[in-house]
């Protein structure tokens, strides 16, 4: 591991000042992703700004829902009674991710910024436009079983690996951000981005901005939710496909629907138009199958991952059946 400088921040304002003060500095909190990437020399920070001691760990009720501090641990959020009772989808997704050890370390803000698990991104001997812009993409024409089938670009076919992000997307979560010019709020569906011509940018967060909280708005209709994760082994593996589904059904008719897909794109895949079309329809297999087809419309598989299209459609139907 290359050496780097280290400073610790005690307050968010401190952290913002420190991140702006040194070139090539990065925030570190749980470290589960960043330390790993530094070991592989995928990330080469000059300075780490330690934000793990900032007072941003609270999970509290707000007028419109629940606010989760950016430094709350994944394990604490999953086990929190407010979250488990009002947003069980988030608990389910968090517990489907990583291992107990990693969940104890990883923070909510860090999970939002978790980087892709594309093998070519992780291997500095390989071309990767995300790691080294302009170097090419090893996955296109390479081994691409785990890669994107939706929203990719000729520069990058990486996927977002987080389970939590898929659930947050289906929960209409909002990311609260502090920066040198003040605060801003970004809905999770707009926080992560598609690769386009700048795959090095996973999200709209600027390097000198700090995530301070995640807001979960209370849904209009309670309904039921489910996180379905399909992976290569029963536990402790990244999703090949995942579905976060939320459905409010009244008298057999769908009143509200949210559907987010993981493992298929550079960001959690949600199509609001498909969700809107479900409203007023009967909660039947035929409806679910139509939604599954629409959500995968335009999918572009690569050599090793065409199976994901059918798998995703089947997973969507099963997840919707579970919450109907």
């Amino acid at each position: 591991m290359k050496s780097f400088d280290y400073v610790q921040a005690s307050q968010p304002a401190d952290a913002l000042r420190l991140i702006g003060a040194a070139p090539s500095s990065r925030f570190i909190a749980g470290g589960t992703n960043l330390v790993d990437l530094i070991k592989y020399e995928v990330e080469n920070p000059g300075t780490l700004v330690d934000i793990s001691q900032l007072p941003l760990t609270k999970i509290e009720k707000t007028a419109t829902g629940i606010r989760i501090g950016a430094l709350a641990r994944n394990s604490d959020v999953a086990a929190n009674k407010l979250i488990a009772s009002q947003f069980p989808l988030l608990s389910e997704a968090l517990l489907a991710g990583a291992s107990p050890q990693l969940r104890n370390m990883a923070t909510m803000g860090g999970n939002l910024l978790q980087r892709t698990r594309c093998n070519y991104f992780y291997d500095p001997s390989q071309p990767c436009n995300k790691r080294a812009p302009g170097s090419g993409c090893g996955a296109i024409g390479g081994y691409n079983r785990i890669h994107a089938i939706l929203g990719a670009s000729p520069q990058c076919i990486a996927t977002n690996p987080s389970d939590m992000n898929v659930a947050l997307s289906a929960l209409d979560a909002v990311v609260q951000i502090s920066g040198p010019n003040g605060n801003r709020s970004v809905p999770v569906i707009d926080f992560h981005r598609l690769p386009g011509d700048t795959p090095q940018k996973d999200s709209v967060l600027e390097p000198d901005e700090l995530i301070v909280a995640i807001d979960l708005p209370t849904p209009k209709n309670a309904g039921k939710s489910h996180y379905l994760k399909v992976r290569d082994r029963a536990s402790y593996a990244f999703a090949i496909i995942s579905v976060a589904a939320r459905l409010a059904v009244d008298g057999g008719v769908i009143r509200e629907a949210r559907l987010a897909l993981g493992g298929v794109a550079h960001k959690p895949w949600r199509l609001v138009a498909v969700e809107n079309q479900l409203i007023g329809k009967p909660a039947t297999d035929a409806t679910f199958q139509a939604a599954a087809r629409q959500l995968l419309a335009g999918a572009q598989p690569h050599e090793h991952n065409a199976f994901k299209i059918k798998l995703a459609q089947s997973a969507i139907v099963r997840a919707l059946q579970t919450v109907a």
Binding site: Y6, I28, G31, V35, D50, Q101, L102, M105
Partner: peptide
């Protein structure tokens, strides 16, 4: 009291 992976923890933190 929490199980953690020491390989991903910087001692200084």
């Amino acid at each position: 009291g929490r199980q953690s992976n020491a390989c991903l923890m910087l001692a200084v933190m």
